[in-house]
Nucleic acid binder design. Structure first.
Lengths: 227, 227
DNA sequence: GCAGCGTTTGACCATTCGGTCAAACCAAAA
DNA sequence: TTTTGGTTTGACCGAATGGTCAAACGCTGC
């Protein structure tokens, strides 16, 4: 690695560039930020961006790699808690929320670039995959394998529910007339999500066994769109 | 308006440009698309983009305006259904899903540009505001005014849960090994969301009245993050 | 036929983009 | 002191960007 070189602060410069890129990419998206912007934000010569990180694309990739590592670490911390299914679900939810609160730029950054082709962003897919497979495995005992109550739908719903808050926070604020990222509101949000997990799990556990394994999911009180 | 001019197809050209911009902005984001790209996609001279729509920013604004109108129309269709609270909630959910299915590019487009400053995108705020105020009003009888079960949290959760699917569809596909936008899966998703509405409403309606109005929300079976 | 007018075209502009490079820099090893 | 090698700088490149414009086009009413 390029660490601890003879002069001033080599790794420090590379890191300042990375942090500047983090802020700008999250705020304006990959295409919305120029290398000049990044260099200026980092207080550094533009050429240094290429010296330390190769290119704009490679810089972006390194940024995502760092996030992916932290994401995977945070989730696996949540995964290897023991206890009942309910306790494990709450552990993972908390781990996910911890990660999102400490890396809320990640959610914005990913969210901005994911809508296009996810082809070019394997880190994101791998990150999602971890959570998806864990959930599919752990919900197998209470969810039917197919239909609207299959684990894969709860994966989308609960990861969506968790991420949405942090991604849309700047848009939510004017609606609420209150800062969604305040300590009080973040704690309330956490309680809300745990309540949702409990309510959902309660209902799933109360399903007749026949409806958990069969292909015909419960349709009670649901309806189609024609009013 | 500039409609029905003497030559070839005036309004048609403006519309083709708008449609091309729609596709490209949704796929690559505002900054990721050049006016040349749009003109090429529309099969039209670049100058015409400026002739018909003024500038890139103004073109984008018109696009959002059109979506906002359709969004507002779709929602108000769902709003003025009668019946019980439960029936009205399902109507609005269906109206919202109908809109998202017919305008899935809107979700991607909005989602891409909302994370930055929502300052410059008043159309988006107004669109969200319609749904937020309707929900806050209609949930007032079953939700406490504050705390983790306040209507505003359910607004974020359920709009998030609904939108996420359509925005992340390209990223979900490789995970599922199945196309989330297929007819079968979209119908399943709809049933899943109605199930979530029912489960949530059931629990809210079973809350003791004291917990619906008081400032202390129920904490049963929820926990803090330290495991 | 001809004027009038909305539309279309392609050349053109200044600016910014991602990226390169030779030269200068500077602390530590010799 | 001189050499060394990782680091920093500013000038520079071709391509692409958003935007402009005078000229050409083509239909309609006269």
């Amino acid at each position: 690695m390029r660490g601890m070189g003879p002069t001033s602060q080599p790794a420090d410069t590379a890191d300042r560039i990375l942090r500047a890129a983090d802020e700008l990419f999250a705020a304006r998206g990959y295409a919305g930020v120029s290398v000049r912007d990044i260099a200026e934000q980092a207080g550094v010569n533009k050429g240094l961006v290429y010296y330390h990180h190769g290119s704009k694309a490679e810089l972006f990739e390194r940024l995502l790699d760092g996030y992916y590592r932290r994401h995977a670490d945070a989730l696996s911390d949540g995964f290897d808690h023991g206890g009942s299914l309910r306790e494990r679900l709450h552990s993972v939810m908390d781990a996910y929320l911890d990660f999102l609160e400490e890396n809320h730029r990640y959610a914005q950054l990913v969210q901005r670039e994911i809508a296009a082709g996810s082809e070019a962003i394997p880190q994101i897919r791998r990150g999602l995959s971890l959570l998806y497979e864990w959930l599919a495995e752990n919900l197998a005992t209470v969810c039917p394998p197919d239909g609207p109550l299959a684990a894969r739908h709860f994966f989308v719903s609960f990861s969506g529910i968790a991420v949405t808050y942090y991604v849309y926070a700047p848009a939510i604020e004017p609606l609420w007339g209150d800062d969604p990222m305040s300590v009080k509101n973040r704690r309330q949000r956490r309680e809300h999500l745990h309540w949702m997990v409990d309510v959902t799990l309660d209902r799933l556990e109360s399903l007749p066994v026949s409806e958990r394994a069969g292909r015909a999911p419960p349709r009670r009180a649901t309806r189609r769109r024609g009013s």
